[in-house]
């Protein structure tokens, strides 16, 4: 990394952190009970100094028990999806890959829909979604290994992902079709389109945080190796990279991150695709700066999306908002970007 590239990476990182903090503060004030920023600050100040009146305490409990957990959830999910999207794009040598390329989202959806269909409760819904997400990728990897006779190539893996994804999506459709249209269907629909509304207890956020660390820390550690892998397996291997091991770590971590995100807030599209792409435009494709910047950018984007979703009179599903913001943004990125990146 040359000095100017490194500097540029740092400036972009600082700017993204500023956006993240600003959007988080903004998000604290937005909702059914709107709080202007000065009030948010005075409540935060009052909490820090221990001087709060009755009204302030009400606001405090709203901020810390409702909005803050939700903001943290949005940040974790945005960072997780963005990190796994960026990593998959590197190892699959394709900038147009989304984090659920290997079928995590549809697998997790099936798990959640099964739980909703049989009325197993919200914790089981999350657990089953998480387990099914991991299971899908496991099946994809096993299938591609046996098809490729031990040398599962990338194209076989992607094809297996597409197949498994379609299969699970068919089961989801089947259960949706059979579901009770008064009670289960809204919940299924809401789940498939993504929402931060349900799971925001501090314990569940803490659990997500742990999974997030387990997935993202190894990714951050091996991130420079992704540069080598993006030149293809043979070249990476000839340069001394243990391709199987590094790719294994990346697939495991990215699957863990995506699966956890989907199990917490349903399927949220676009984030893992466009954020790494935009960060690449801002600070270059070197994974040393790309991965951390994409995580911060993803977190900020998700908080902003949540603000939009909540600011609307009826809370919108996340995927609707990410698509409405993401699709035009992506077109603009393509329009501005270097054509040979595609």
């Amino acid at each position: 990394m040359n000095v100017s590239a490194r500097l540029r990476g740092r400036i972009v990182r600082a700017a993204l952190i500023a956006v993240l903090i600003a959007s988080a503060l903004l998000s604290l004030g937005v909702g059914h009970y709107a709080m202007p920023l000065p009030e948010v600050f005075s409540v935060l100040w009052g909490t820090a100094t221990g001087t709060l009146d009755a009204r302030g305490q009400l606001s405090q409990s709203l901020l810390f028990q409702v909005r803050l957990p939700r903001i943290v959830l949005a940040m974790l999910v945005g960072a997780a999806l963005s990190a796994s999207g960026a990593s998959y794009q590197g190892i699959l040598k394709n900038p147009l890959v989304a984090p659920d390329i290997l079928g995590v989202s549809n697998g997790a959806s099936l798990g959640a829909v099964i739980a909703i269909f049989f009325g197993l409760g919200s914790i089981a819904t999350q657990g089953l979604a998480f387990a099914f997400g991991l299971l899908t990728v496991f099946l994809v990897v096993v299938a591609s290994k046996s098809i490729g006779r031990g040398n599962g190539t990338i194209i076989v893996m992607i094809l297996c992902g597409v197949v498994m994804s379609s299969l699970f999506s068919a089961f989801v459709s089947l259960l949706t079709y059979l579901a009770d249209s008064d009670t289960q269907l809204p919940e299924i629909t809401y789940w498939i389109m993504g929402s931060f509304a349900r799971t925001s207890s501090p314990q569940s956020i803490a659990a997500l945080f742990l999974i997030f660390c387990a997935g993202s820390i190894p990714l951050l550690c091996v991130r420079w190796r992704i540069n080598a892998l993006s030149f293809g397996d043979e070249e990476a291997s000839s340069m001394g990279v243990n391709v199987k091991r590094v790719r294994g770590i990346i697939v495991c971590c990215a699957t863990l991150l995506t699966s956890a995100s989907v199990s917490y807030c349903g399927v949220v599209g676009w984030v893992g695709l466009i954020i790494p792409h935009m960060v690449r435009l801002l600070s270059g494709p070197d994974y040393q700066s790309l991965l951390p910047n994409a995580m911060i950018g993803g977190a900020a984007f998700m908080v902003l999306v949540d603000i939009c979703a909540r600011a609307c009179p009826t809370a919108l599903p996340l995927s609707v908002v990410t698509a409405i913001i993401g699709a035009p943004l992506f077109l603009w990125v393509l329009f501005k970007g270097r054509k040979d990146w595609l």
Binding site: N227, A228, R280
Partner: peptide, 21 residues
């Protein structure tokens, strides 16, 4: 290459066998 790396970063990848995993 799939991504628009700087030449310096492309050549740096050649150091993979000398840099820890």
């Amino acid at each position: 290459a799939p991504f628009a790396f700087y030449v310096r970063d492309v050549v740096a990848v050649g150091r993979s066998s000398h840099v820890g995993m």
